[in-house]
Design a binder for these strands. Structure first.
Lengths: 223, 223
DNA sequence: TAATATCATAAGGTTTGCCTATTAATTAAT
DNA sequence: ATTAATTAATAGGCAAACCTTATGATATTA
């Protein structure tokens, strides 16, 4: 499938769709929320993407990526995450800033550069935030993990990935040691959707539930 | 001087100005020609850049970069040429394609990335096309060389830089060995602005005068 | 089934950058 | 010096890509 060049904005919508819903239906409102635009703007874009055959839109139900849309979206993710690897491992850019800076570069990256970069990096499988890098053909293994927000009190878990994109949010998590491979224990969960209290690297850390949603973990069975 | 983010198009105009005129006045028509737009478009952009204090425009005379404009332009050149180094030396992108691909990336490059890239590359002084890379503060030594088109018949010269930007033109030169550090001898100059005949790596090569303009050389004195 | 929340569409605005056609200034040539 | 030819600038307009507010349609749930 040959993909015509897409606008930066289009690529952001596609990326948000695959990050938010994968192969599932996504509510247009969620998309608008994530991209910080009005739902009108998101709707309009969905109409355009529908005309281009990238998404399928069932009014009042939501949108899904078509095969073509999914390929395009995975291609964007591949570029993004390869740049993240480069910025982090070679340019020594601070972890919280990597996402945003890679995002700028991703839209300006020709296929030849993408593949040369992948080769240079040694075909990495995961980005610095723990998410898998789609292959050149567009497919990838979704991470099998659960959100930290659903781990029960007393549970031990290892962070697999951090799904935040905002630099300030990433900075907040970074300062508390909440990065991939880190192990955490849920000490307490405050009632009424209150914050979690975690034990991280020997220190107690409070983390709002909304933030905990972004943190993908695997349970470490009690030995 | 703090530079607000400039549009891609704006950066292209600034880059063309510094490449075409340096500190000198540039005719708006030349600029339009170089960027493949009508002179109306170039005029309009000059008005906008004038309002932003980046250029000084004397109607019917031409435009020059202000100090601020020159800094912005040199900053663009720095990003462009650093990416050229990276693409060529590390990603092994073919020499003729490097310019165009670097050009895409240059507009998406934040200052932090520029400086981290420069450090990664070991603060290179020249790009793969032979031109100097401006320092972080914006200044650089202009290359002291002459155009191959003004070297007399019989003259020996060493190529210092190639000023072409079009991938096809670069490919043409590359296929004939006309790259920086290469030594050439002018065997013959056809009359009426006809092509030069050159001796390059033991082979005779014909080169149109227009193309020879792009090739910057230093004379090798007859020993 | 009525109320509420969510979603979709209508109509319109802004920005950016491009164009054709016209007018004005400059330069070169008689 | 005056005119012809060249080059530059302005007027007016178009299109693409996004955004907005206001309004109408559908779903959900009490």
């Amino acid at each position: 499938m040959i993909l015509q060049p897409l606008s930066e904005s289009t690529e952001m919508y596609l990326k948000a769709m695959v990050e938010l819903g994968g192969r599932e239906v996504v509510a247009v409102g969620r998309l608008a929320e994530r991209l910080s635009v009005t739902s009108v703007s998101a709707n309009e874009m969905m109409r355009r993407l529908g005309e281009q055959g990238l998404v399928s839109h069932t009014p009042y139900k939501g949108v899904t990526l078509t095969q073509m849309g999914r390929e395009a979206a995975c291609n964007v993710l591949r570029r993004q995450r390869l740049w993240e690897c480069f910025l982090y491992a070679h340019l020594k850019i601070e972890w919280p800033q990597v996402y945003e800076l890679a995002c700028d570069l991703e839209h300006a990256t020709a296929p030849a550069v993408t593949e040369a970069l992948a080769a240079f990096l040694g075909q990495p499988s995961h980005c610095p935030y723990g998410d898998p890098i789609p292959a050149a053909d567009g497919e990838f293994e979704p991470l099998l993990g659960i959100s930290l927000s659903v781990v029960g009190v007393g549970g031990h878990a290892r962070i697999l990935a951090v799904r935040a994109t905002d630099t300030d949010v990433l900075k907040y998590l970074y300062e508390r040691g909440l990065v991939p491979a880190c192990e955490v224990q849920v000490v307490e969960a405050a009632p009424l959707q209150g914050p979690l209290t975690l034990r991280v690297n020997g220190k107690e850390v409070a983390l709002g539930l909304a933030l905990a949603e972004f943190v993908i973990v695997e349970i470490i069975p009690a030995s």
